[in-house]
Write a protein that binds this DNA or RNA. Structure first.
Length: 244
DNA sequence: AGCGCAGACACTGGCAAGAT
DNA sequence: ATCTTGCCAGTGTCTGCGCT
């Protein structure tokens, strides 16, 4: 067991915001900086709507407490007209990523509340980032995943595992909403990134292809030509010519 | 309507060889 | 040394159906 009050005080000292810690059954374990309980308030769905209306002031992150023992931290400066943050946990997580926390809660009810809250925050934040088009949560999360990991090996299998949905369903959903297949979108993203490197660096095509996530330069050239109607080298030469 | 699954097939991506 | 092209095994996508 660990000292909940000690955790609350440490976080309070760090961010100077009042803190509520809830357990996995959504019971208030401790409040620091408050004189009364937020237990009932947090269970009220209106809180989600409050967060929705003040989303721009809301952020979330995973705070590591001990090895594999984490809290979900939701900070807001306007929610219910107070500066405050929530700590929900503890829970175990395999990797530090707010978009895919693995939360082995015992209570299905608390699980749903947290998922709903998390999904809403992530979805709304990312939809804002990707324009006014309203993509589904899965597509939004995959777009964010591409943006963060385009330079790494990305497989649909592992992405779908993280998202918790069927691979076939994800592919059709992605195509329906974006007009691109997942791999096409990813490749186009990588090609666009590589154009910046072709323009602004002297890196070889091999280095650039590895830099943007292609595993080999030959396939990079093929994909580049598909989207640009010219080889990477032709693109670079054209840019250099235009700059003279 | 939203989601999951199986199977067919189109496409990707690694590799090797050739071209510059 | 660097880049392009062709081949083909493995992977991704699509379709159709069923379940909730």
């Amino acid at each position: 067991m660990f000292d909940v009050e000690c955790v609350a005080k440490n976080f309070f000292d760090c961010c100077n915001l009042p803190i509520c810690i809830f357990d996995y059954d959504f019971e208030l374990l401790h409040s620091y900086g408050y004189n009364y309980s937020y237990e009932d308030m947090f269970k009220n769905l209106n809180l989600i709507n409050d967060m929705k209306n003040n989303l721009i002031n809301c952020s979330s992150c995973i705070l590591n407490f001990k090895k594999n023992l984490n809290f979900l931290c939701i900070k807001s400066s306007k929610t219910i007209n107070l500066n405050m943050s929530f700590l929900i946990g503890p829970f175990k997580t395999g990797f530090v990523d707010t978009s895919s926390p693995f939360i082995p809660f015992k209570s299905p009810t608390s699980m749903k509340y947290i998922e709903k809250l998390l999904m809403f925050i992530i979805s709304e934040n990312l939809n804002e980032k990707y324009g006014h088009v309203k993509y589904s949560l899965y597509v939004v999360k995959s777009l964010d995943y591409i943006e963060k990991n385009y330079s790494e090996n990305i497989s649909i299998d592992s992405l779908c595992k993280d998202l918790g949905i069927n691979k076939s369903y994800f592919c059709s959903l992605f195509k329906k909403e974006t007009g691109f297949t997942f791999v096409n979108y990813l490749n186009k993203y990588r090609v666009d990134k590589s154009k910046q490197l072709l323009e602004n660096s002297n890196l070889s095509l091999m280095d650039i292809s590895l830099e943007v996530g292609f595993n080999n330069q030959s396939y990079y050239s093929t994909v580049f030509k598909k989207f640009s109607n010219k080889s990477p080298l032709e693109f670079r030469e054209e840019v250099l010519t235009n700059h003279i």
